[in-house]
């Protein structure tokens, strides 16, 4: 019974396939921003990556869309590919109803102390919550990485407790320090490098979220899950030192 329901859900989600310029096909789905739909989207993504293996085709996702970029677009007829992808996706829907995707849950240290949290007191006043309560709510949730966008390595995270939703600053800061953890609207995120930005800053993460020297430069990938672990200033400093020395191991667990 459960299986049948899932099949029906999968079958009607393709909205359209749109050609963007000479090189890119956008595969758009009728989906909501939910971890359930994200898993379906990533399931399609993995299947398509397999289909286009070794063909110089790059596939990325956002909330409800897959972007397929053909490096050598002149070797393909994108109109034909559109039809093929449509049939292919319908086929996946009929044949497979279990996502093979197994995300990791990363335990990410965050220090919420004042020097890293210039907006925590302000936010507490505005939201009428104790600062400790904000920290508790923020570090209790499990967040899902929907995709990496905006800045190299910047994870778009879903799952912020509704009590913590709060608009961005009207005037963005010119420089937000690397590792800053902030709230912007319904989202929370970590700045992988220092940059201008309008988010309300409530903490700092000592890890290298993005490191161009790594083979996989971004610490997170779409579908990963994150939990924030509260650390004090001393631990923050220690972790930073270990990260710099290359001896810090990020704690993670994998779901089956």
């Amino acid at each position: 019974m459960k299986t049948t329901l899932k099949l029906e859900r999968l079958m009607h989600k393709l909205k359209r396939i749109f050609q963007l310029g000479e090189q890119v096909l956008l595969v758009e789905f009728d989906m909501s921003i939910s971890t359930e739909d994200l898993n379906v989207l990533l399931h399609y993504k993995i299947q398509l990556e397999d289909k286009y293996k070794n063909k110089n085709v790059e596939i990325t996702n956002t909330y409800t869309c897959l972007s397929i970029r053909f490096k050598n677009a002149n070797e393909f007829n994108l109109n034909t590919e559109k039809q093929l992808i449509k049939s292919f996706i319908e086929c996946i829907s009929l044949n497979e109803n279990n996502s093979k995707f197994s995300p990791s849950v990363y335990h990410i240290p965050v220090c919420y102390k004042e020097e890293f949290a210039p907006d925590l007191a302000f936010l507490a006043g505005q939201l009428q919550l104790e600062q400790e309560e904000i920290i508790r709510l923020h570090s209790q949730a499990t967040y899902t990485v929907y995709f990496i966008g905006f800045l190299p390595g910047f994870p778009y995270l879903g799952g912020l407790n509704e009590k913590l939703h709060f608009p961005r600053k009207n005037t963005p800061r010119l420089k937000i320090p690397k590792g800053s953890v902030g709230i912007g609207g319904q989202q929370t995120g970590i700045y992988p490098s220092s940059s201008p930005g309008g988010w309300q800053l409530i903490g700092n993460c000592p890890l290298e979220i993005f490191d161009v020297r790594r083979k996989t430069p971004s610490l997170f990938q779409a579908g990963d899950q994150i939990q924030f672990k509260v650390v004090d200033k001393k631990e923050h400093k220690e972790i930073q030192t270990q990260v710099e020395a290359g001896i810090y191991h990020i704690k993670s667990t994998t779901h089956d």
């Binding site: 790059e58 970029r69 990496i148 966008g149 190299p152 430069p217 990938q221 779409a222």
Partner: peptide
């Protein structure tokens, strides 16, 4: 090419 997944332009 191939690094859009990390948000590299």
């Amino acid at each position: 090419f191939g690094v859009a997944q990390y948000a590299i332009p």
